[in-house]
Design a binder for these strands. Structure first.
Length: 427
DNA sequence: TCTGGGGTCCTAGGACCC
DNA sequence: TCTGGGGTCCTAGGACCC
């Protein structure tokens, strides 16, 4: 019995989330900006139709935006994460095997649901999410992940499929014709570099790639691309990962809202990002064995003196205690810091991560201190979960945080903050 | 003036060992 | 004059994803 997977992907996810609570935005061109209101990271269909490209800096299109009445929002991750959780919970009810692949898409294993008719089942998913969350989604169904991604794209672009494209419904000729029309860059795992390379050797369409010699592909690219070719031929190489594996590295970094010169302010940012990284570390019940910090100026300001450097500090003992991780990060920062530069960004990374249960006890373990640390971190996490991130934090993170990013166009946290819940009035 | 953040995997090449 | 070969580990860098 061949495997069948569904890939469910929300349409223009961030832009659609903004519309759910603000229906006057329906039909209007709308973009969502990255942190610091820097680049466009999501666009409504109307904005795409105006030629606004993914990732373009906002300041470059502000004039165009004004002329066409494009509405821009700062990212509102609290809202998007909550909407995502709702979508994923609904989809989980359609199959016992789900892989949440990203904030706006998931795979479902459809084994056992053959009698429902996969295409019809896909339509049921769409209407449930539209009705209960208010978001539009499209569904691709196929024997491999790569094919499911591909037909999901087809479902989005070709109205005759009405939002659900089932690979199994297509004849060999139809598949051949379809793949012949799609550029190779549409394939999951083929980015712009590989796409240029493929074109050079005469592989222009998805069909060309599917028919390419796996051996040659492996030689010219890598085993990853070879698997992609196999997957395009219906041979599964990528398994459904229902349990998200623990992260091997945890990062936290942000650009500043304005240039920062002083070591004190850089230290505040590093302490703040490290607290966030430590939170993520504890959430997956891990310990970090090393701390990495990097600082950099703004590479786009080519006339300014540039400095970009990072450094790793191995820890004597793996830990998840924010205080120890922050202390280590500040030591690294002091070594990295050079006065006189206009810093634009700092970042931290936790590496050499192990499961907390894997830690080897030593003769010199301070068991009392370790229990205290554990209890303290647990209490901090619970308070911040209940009352909001940053409710309780280290003084080292700073009180004013003048370096913080800009987010001047953020919509309210409609679903996660009591004070910002929308109010409905009966007239 | 203004250009995101967080991940994974693979490969090549050097160091080192026997 | 002639100067091995193979394995492992680590790191940096590149490519991809959303």
């Amino acid at each position: 019995m061949p495997r069948n997977l569904a890939l469910i992907d929300c349409n223009n996810f961030y832009a659609s989330c903004e519309r759910v609570f603000n229906p006057t935005l329906e039909g209007k061109p709308l973009v969502v900006l990255s942190n610091n209101d820097g680049c466009v990271v999501a666009r409504s269909q109307e904005a795409k139709d105006l030629g606004i490209k993914m990732g373009v800096p906002w300041f470059q299109i502000e004039g165009l935006a004004k002329r066409h009445g494009i509405i821009a929002f700062s990212s509102n991750y609290a809202l998007y994460a909550d909407m995502s959780n709702r979508v994923m919970a609904i989809l989980a009810s359609f199959s016992p095997s789900q892989e949440v692949y990203s904030i706006d898409e998931c795979f479902l294993d459809l084994a056992g649901f053959e009698r429902r008719g996969f295409t019809r089942y896909g339509q049921e998913m769409r209407s449930a999410i539209k009705r209960w969350v208010g978001l539009p989604v499209c569904v691709g169904i196929a024997p491999t992940k790569t094919l499911a991604k591909l037909v999901n794209h087809v479902a989005k672009k070709r109205p005759q499929f009405d939002g659900v494209c089932n690979y199994n419904d297509l004849s060999t000729d139809e598949i051949d014709a379809l793949m012949g029309e799609l550029p190779v860059s549409e394939v999951w795992g083929v980015g712009c570099r590989h796409s240029a390379h493929l074109q050079q050797i005469g592989i222009l369409t998805v069909r060309d790639l599917r028919q390419a010699s796996p051996k040659m592909i492996r030689k010219q690219f890598s085993v990853v691309m070879e698997r992609t070719v196999a997957e395009l031929n219906g041979e599964p190489c990528l398994a459904l990962e229902e349990m998200a594996p623990a992260k091997k590295q945890i990062m936290s970094s942000r650009s500043f809202g304005r240039p920062v010169f002083a070591l004190d302010e850089l230290a505040e940012s590093v302490a703040s990002y490290m607290s966030r990284a430590a939170e993520k570390l504890r959430r997956q019940h891990s310990l970090a064995g090393a701390v990495q910090v990097y600082v950099r100026t703004n590479p786009f300001k080519e006339r300014d003196p540039q400095y970009s450097h990072g450094m790793i500090l191995p820890l004597a003992e793996p830990t998840d205690d924010t205080r120890r991780l922050v202390a280590a990060a500040i030591i690294v920062l002091r070594r990295l810091y050079r006065p006189g530069f206009a810093y634009a960004k700092t970042g931290v990374m936790l590496t050499e991560i192990i499961a907390a249960t894997q830690r080897m006890p030593t003769l010199f373990d301070d068991t009392v201190g370790m229990t205290r640390s554990k209890n303290l971190m647990h209490a901090v996490d619970r308070i911040n979960q209940a009352y909001g991130r940053g409710t309780i934090r280290l003084a080292a993170e700073g009180l004013d945080q003048h370096w913080k990013m800009r987010a001047g166009r953020r919509s309210p946290s409609f679903t996660t903050c009591l004070a910002e819940i929308p109010i409905a009035r009966a007239i």
